[in-house]
């Protein structure tokens, strides 16, 4: 009897099952989003590569401007005049929609690098922005290492 009752309840439940859609605020990855003031989308830079640090559990995307993309694959260890890069790094978080995936979590930093020539000397303009609000950092310690790190990145294979 209980079975029959259950079956009839199910029949009603299937007819009436209706769940509200998830709101956009819950779906947009707020903590990984960049502040509007940074205007990354207006730079129109394209992805060079993405990488992960499995020890720090961070994930990064390296973008480059047209100049970078026109000479990808060529020797660019020292950078070339006119190149412009942006490197964005996030802390990873578990993907609530897929067990087996990690997605960007808290925004850690954005770094910008431009390469210019001045009197046949290569000049690097490097700047780091930190935290959720991407606050400009005045401290320049370790900048040379970061410049080398950015320039050393190989491009992802993209057909």
């Amino acid at each position: 009897m209980k079975r029959i009752l259950n079956i009839s309840i199910v029949l009603f439940a299937t007819l009436n099952s209706c769940k509200p859609l998830t709101g956009a605020d819950a779906l947009i990855n707020q903590k990984a989003s960049l502040p509007e003031s940074f205007r990354l989308s207006e730079l129109h830079q394209k992805v060079i590569t993405s990488f992960i640090n499995n020890r720090k559990h961070t994930t990064s995307i390296l973008y480059g401007n047209k100049v970078v993309h026109s000479i990808l694959g060529a020797d660019r260890a020292n950078g070339n005049s006119g190149e412009s890069f942006t490197l964005v790094t996030w802390q990873q978080q578990d993907d609530a929609h897929w067990f087996g995936a990690r997605i960007p979590g808290d925004l850690i930093s954005a770094e910008t690098l431009t390469v210019a020539d001045s009197n046949s000397q290569t000049i690097y303009h490097y700047q780091k922005f930190k935290g959720k609000e991407l606050t400009k950092l005045a401290d320049t310690t370790g900048n040379a290492d970061r410049v080398r790190f950015i320039l050393s990145k190989k491009a992802s294979i993209m057909p």
């Binding site: 990855n29 989308s41 129109h44 992805v47 993405s50 994930t59 995936a101 990690r102």
Partner: peptide
């Protein structure tokens, strides 16, 4: 698509891809 904006990344440790 290579000129579009990135809207996320995914580290798929279930199948060894990113």
């Amino acid at each position: 698509y290579k000129n579009w904006q990135v809207i996320s990344t995914s580290d798929r440790f279930d199948n060894g891809t990113m």
